[in-house]
Computed example of a mutant assay.
Amino acid sequence: MTDTAPNSQHSTRLVVSYEYASLILVVLGLGWAGFFASIGWWRVVGLDLLLIVVGVASYLLIRRGQLTIGLLLSQTALFLLVGAICLMFDVPSADAPRVSHLYLLVIAALGYLNYRRQPSGVQIGLVVICLASFVALASSTLSTPLAMPVPDSVRIAGSWVNTIVAVGMLCGCAYAMQAEFTSRGALSRDLMAALWNEEFISSTSLRSIESAPLSARKLSCAGPAPSAGRFPRQSLFPKPSAAA
């Protein structure tokens, strides 16, 4: 089942942003899996392979049109993966800071884009959890008793790579947000200008429209019918005295 409900329609720009984010996860997972395999850190390799699986699954779901479930599942899986990496392998030290938690901001940003597209309690809940977890991990040295920190010599170089990738993805999310908000604002301004200039054309007679309830008055730009004509804004917004 694909997203076909009116309130779940999504722009091509957002879909492409999600697809690129999924592919970046795959590339990042492949790179780190290859590196840690070369030094024998197989538990980290296992997490990197899971990251690749999440990226591929998210990409395929998005390509099939199942954007909502694809995003919710991928955000949940990524949150668990990032949390495990932060608490077990990316434990901060005096020489190497923790940086994996930066990806929680990326997950929250993508989640907010999805919330703007289709508001839901589950989605905003995931956003809040990601932000709260980011604050907790950034403000402390949280770890688990089973933690096996990666050597600082590896983490120092990795901190640069992860920071660059995470900031780049955040910039992409910011661009997608700005472009989406600008597009919606331009559409609203165009509709208001057209209404003010009485540029709408009705596909039914003006008399039948004026006699209908306000909630039932609909506009169509498909072209004038024999009894159609210009749609004056006064017919949409009655005078205060009449409305009272």
Rank of each mutant, 00 (worst) to 15 (best):
D3E: 11
D3C: 07
V15A: 13
V16H: 13
Y20W: 15
A21T: 04
L23R: 08
G31K: 05
V44I: 14
L50D: 00
I52S: 02
Y59D: 07
R63I: 10
G65Y: 06
G65K: 06
T76S: 14
T76Q: 10
F79Q: 06
L80E: 09
L80W: 08
I85A: 04
C86N: 11
F89E: 00
S93Q: 06
S100W: 12
Y103L: 08
L104W: 02
G111N: 01
G111T: 05
Y112M: 12
Y112A: 10
L113W: 04
Y115S: 02
R116K: 12
R117E: 04
P119M: 05
L126K: 05
V127W: 00
I129T: 11
C130W: 01
V135E: 00
S140W: 11
L142G: 01
V150A: 03
S153Y: 06
I156E: 11
V161M: 08
T163K: 03
I164C: 07
C171I: 15
A176Q: 02
Q178W: 12
S183F: 09
S183E: 12
A193R: 15
A193V: 13
W196Y: 09
E198W: 08
F200S: 02
T204G: 00
L206E: 10
S208R: 13
S208W: 02
A212I: 00
S215G: 03
S220V: 05
S220N: 14
C221G: 10
A222W: 13
P226K: 13
A228Q: 10
F231T: 00
L236T: 00
